[in-house]
Measured scan of single mutants.
Amino acid sequence: KAKLLVLLYAFVATDADTICIGYHANNSTDTVDTILEKNVAVTHSVNLLEDSHNGKLCKLKGIAPLQLGKCNITGWLLGNPECDSLLPARSWSYIVETPNSENGACYPGDLIDYEELREQLSSVSSLERFEIFPKESSWPNHTFNGVTVSCSHRGKSSFYRNLLWLTKKGDSYPKLTNSYVNNKGKEVLVLWGVHHPSSSDEQQSLYSNGNAYVSVASSNYNRRFTPEIAARPKVRDQHGRMNYYWTLLEPGDTIIFEATGNLIAPWYAFALSRGFESGIITSNASMHECNTKCQTPQGAINSNLPFQNIHPVTIGECPKYVRSTKLRMVTGLRNIPSIQYRGLFGAIAGFIEGGWTGMIDGWYGYHHQNEQGSGYAADQKSTQNAINGITNKVNSVIEKMNTQFTAVGKEFNNLEKRMENLNKKVDDGFLDIWTYNAELLVLLENERTLDFHDLNVKNLYEKVKSQLKNNAKEIGNGCFEFYHKCDNECMESVRNGTYDYPKYSEESKLNR
C-alpha cells in the first residue's frame, strides 16, 4: 500500500503543469573576455578590431598615390635624371617610397634638414613645378651647363633637372645676384646647392675665386655659405661634395641669391598645395585598381571598426592602431551559463540550468507544459528593451572611439638618435595607453552587458513569482510547478501579467 502511494505521488508530481523562465541559446562559437572571465561563450557579439588588409596600394578616395619607385624624396625633388618619370607629377593622395629606393642625390652630399622637408611634404597633396630662374636668361655671365658622370643618364654625363651647376664663363666668375618674388599665391619650395671641391685647383678651375661665398636671403631665411675645400674619400667617382638646401617662400615674399662661386642654382621650384589627408609611407606593396579610405604600408583597410592592429602608420580615415589581438564586445547572452554566478555589478545569474535553442524569437521568455502540450514563448517587451539598450551602447562606444585619422611616422637624422629613441618611447607609451583603454573598455562593457542580461532574466522570474504567489511552488531551476490546472489561456495570463490569483487560489489551497 505504501509503495502504491509513492508511485501515485510521483505520477501526480510529474503530471503537474509547469512554467519556466529562460533565455535564448544557439550554436554560436563566439567568445568574449570580461573583467572576471576569459573566453566566455556568448550567443552574439561584435568585433571592434580590424585585423585584415588587402595587401595592395590603392587610390585614396579615388585619387591615385605618387609612387616614387626607384627614387626617394631627395632624388625626386632635386631632379635626379633617373627620376625623370616623376617630373610630370602634379597631385596625389599620398606618397609612396620603397624601403630600398636607390636614386637620391646622384652627386654625393646631403639634403640639409631632410627630415623636416619630409614632414612638410606629408601635408602636401599637389604642386606646380615651374621655372623659377629661366636657364637661358638668368645667368648671362656664367656657364650653366655643368654636368657630371655621377648623374649620368643613358650613358652620358648629366645633372639634376631642377638645378643648374653654374661655373665660370671664360676665365671669370663675376659676382651674381638674382631674385624671385613669389607671385603664386601659395608657398613655394625653393631648392639650391653649394659645391665643396676637393682641392684649391678644382676650386680655381671651376670658379676662378679662391674665397667664394654663397648667400641666400628671404624674410624668414638668411644664410651665408662658404665652400669647404678638403680631400675626401671618393664616392660615386667624386672627391667633391654638394650640400643641398631648401626653404619655403611665403606668398609675396622675395628670395635673393648672391654668389661669387660654388652656387648650384635653382632652375625649377614648386608651388605647394596642402592636403590634410596626405602623407608619406614606405612600402613594398604594389599598386592595383582599387579604392580605399584608409591606406597602410601593408595594404588598404576598408573598415568602419574603431581599432586596427595592422600597422601604426596610416593615411586617410583609419581606425586607431592598438596592439590588441582581440577586441570583441558582447551583444547577446551567455551561451554556457554559470550556476549560481554573481556578476561584478550585482546581477544574479545561473538559476537557469541552460539556455534554450528552441526559443528563437527572443532573448528571454517562457517554456510551459500542461495537458494541452508544451512550447516556448519569447517575452518580446523585455527582449526589445534589451536590444535597444545594447545597440545604443555599442553604437555609442564605437562612435566615441571611432575617431579616424592619419598617423604618419616621424623623421630623425643620424645625429638625432637620442631624440628618436625618446620619441619611440613616448609613442610606445601612448600606444600602451590606447591599447589598455580599449581593452579595459571592452572588458568592463562585456561584464556589464552579461550582468544586464542576467538581471533581465531574474526580473522576469520575479515578475512571475509575484503573480503566482503560493498558487505554485519554485522547483529550483527557474521553473514553477502549479498547484492547479493551468491551461493555455492561464499560461498566457502569466506571461502577459494578467494572471488571476484569486481564481485559482482555492484549487491551489486544496492541492498544497
Rank of each mutant, 00 (worst) to 15 (best):
K1Y: 09
K1T: 15
K3E: 09
L4A: 15
L4M: 07
L5A: 08
V6G: 05
V6F: 13
L7G: 09
L8E: 00
Y9I: 14
Y9C: 14
Y9K: 15
Y9L: 09
A10G: 05
A10Y: 09
F11T: 01
F11D: 07
V12R: 11
V12Y: 09
V12H: 10
V12T: 02
A13D: 03
D15Q: 09
D15S: 12
A16N: 10
A16K: 11
T18F: 02
C20A: 05
C20H: 03
I21R: 03
H24A: 14
H24K: 14
A25M: 06
A25K: 01
A25E: 00
N26A: 11
N27M: 04
N27D: 14
S28Y: 05
S28I: 03
D30L: 02
D30P: 01
T31D: 00
T31S: 12
V32D: 15
V32L: 15
I35A: 11
L36E: 06
L36H: 00
E37Y: 06
E37D: 09
E37K: 06
V42M: 12
T43C: 02
H44V: 01
S45E: 05
S45N: 12
S45D: 06
V46R: 10
V46E: 05
V46G: 07
N47Y: 06
N47P: 10
N47E: 14
N47Q: 07
L48D: 04
L49C: 08
L49T: 03
E50K: 03
D51E: 10
D51I: 08
S52V: 13
N54Q: 10
N54M: 09
G55F: 06
G55Y: 03
L57H: 08
K59M: 08
K59Q: 10
K59N: 15
L60T: 01
L60H: 01
L60V: 15
K61G: 12
K61C: 00
I63G: 08
I63H: 10
I63S: 04
I63T: 10
P65G: 12
P65A: 15
P65N: 06
L66W: 12
L66P: 06
Q67E: 12
Q67F: 11
L68Q: 02
K70W: 07
C71H: 04
C71S: 03
N72D: 14
N72H: 11
I73M: 13
L77Y: 01
L78Q: 02
L78T: 10
G79R: 01
G79P: 06
G79W: 08
N80W: 05
P81Q: 02
D84I: 02
D84S: 06
S85C: 07
S85E: 14
S85T: 09
S85F: 11
L86T: 11
L87M: 15
P88W: 00
P88S: 11
R90P: 02
R90W: 03
S91Q: 13
S91H: 14
S93A: 12
S93L: 01
Y94T: 08
I95F: 09
V96T: 07
V96G: 04
E97G: 10
T98Q: 15
S101T: 14
E102T: 08
E102N: 14
N103S: 11
G104S: 13
A105Q: 04
A105V: 15
A105R: 00
A105Y: 00
C106L: 02
Y107H: 06
G109T: 06
G109A: 06
D110A: 15
D110E: 14
L111E: 00
D113Q: 13
D113P: 02
D113I: 00
Y114C: 01
Y114A: 13
Y114K: 02
E115A: 14
E119T: 04
E119V: 03
E119N: 11
Q120W: 11
S122N: 12
S122D: 02
V124E: 00
S126H: 00
L127Q: 08
E128F: 04
R129A: 05
F130P: 02
E131L: 08
E131I: 09
E131W: 08
E131P: 15
I132Y: 09
I132A: 11
I132G: 04
I132W: 10
F133Y: 14
P134A: 06
K135I: 04
S137M: 13
S138M: 11
S138I: 08
W139K: 00
W139N: 00
N141S: 09
N141W: 09
N141E: 10
N141L: 04
N141Y: 07
H142D: 01
H142P: 00
T143L: 06
T143C: 03
F144M: 09
N145V: 09
G146W: 06
V147L: 01
V147Q: 08
T148G: 00
T148Y: 03
S150P: 01
S150N: 09
C151S: 13
S152Y: 00
S152A: 10
H153A: 15
R154G: 08
R154T: 13
R154L: 14
G155D: 15
G155C: 07
G155T: 10
K156M: 14
S157T: 15
S157A: 12
S157Y: 14
S158Y: 00
S158N: 07
F159P: 06
Y160L: 03
Y160H: 05
R161N: 04
R161V: 03
R161D: 04
N162V: 02
L163C: 10
L164S: 07
L164N: 10
L164P: 00
K169N: 10
K169G: 10
K169D: 12
K169W: 07
K169L: 09
K169P: 00
G170E: 08
G170A: 12
Y173G: 02
K175R: 07
T177W: 11
T177Q: 01
N178P: 06
N178E: 02
N178G: 13
S179C: 05
S179V: 14
V181C: 12
V181L: 11
V181Q: 11
N182H: 05
N183E: 08
K184S: 04
K184F: 15
K184C: 04
G185M: 09
K186T: 13
K186L: 13
K186F: 02
K186D: 02
E187P: 15
V190E: 01
V190Q: 03
G193T: 00
G193F: 04
G193V: 05
G193R: 00
H195W: 09
H195T: 04
H196T: 05
P197I: 08
S198R: 05
S198M: 10
S199E: 07
S199K: 14
S199N: 12
S199W: 10
S200D: 13
D201Q: 08
D201C: 00
E202W: 12
Q203V: 04
Q203T: 05
Q203K: 03
Q204S: 08
S205P: 00
S205V: 14
L206I: 11
Y207N: 05
Y207P: 04
Y207W: 06
S208Q: 00
S208P: 12
N209K: 12
G210L: 13
G210Q: 04
G210C: 01
N211W: 07
A212E: 00
A212C: 11
A212G: 10
Y213T: 06
S215V: 12
S215F: 14
A217C: 12
S218E: 03
S218D: 12
S219M: 15
N220M: 08
Y221W: 13
Y221P: 00
Y221I: 14
N222W: 04
R223T: 09
R223C: 09
R224M: 07
R224P: 00
F225M: 14
T226V: 13
T226N: 07
T226H: 09
E228H: 13
E228L: 09
I229G: 00
P233M: 10
P233R: 13
K234Y: 04
R236N: 15
D237Y: 01
D237F: 07
Q238P: 00
H239R: 10
H239I: 15
H239F: 07
R241I: 09
R241Q: 09
Y244D: 04
Y244S: 05
W246T: 03
W246H: 02
T247Y: 13
L248T: 12
P251G: 11
D253G: 14
D253W: 02
D253Y: 01
I255V: 15
E258Q: 06
A259R: 00
A259F: 06
T260G: 10
G261E: 13
L263Y: 13
L263P: 01
I264N: 01
A265W: 11
A265Y: 05
A265E: 02
A265M: 09
A269N: 05
A269P: 02
A269D: 01
A269S: 14
F270E: 12
A271M: 14
A271C: 01
R274I: 03
G275M: 04
G275T: 12
G275Q: 12
G275Y: 06
F276Y: 11
E277C: 05
E277K: 09
E277P: 13
S278W: 07
S278V: 12
I280D: 09
I280C: 01
I281L: 15
T282A: 12
T282P: 00
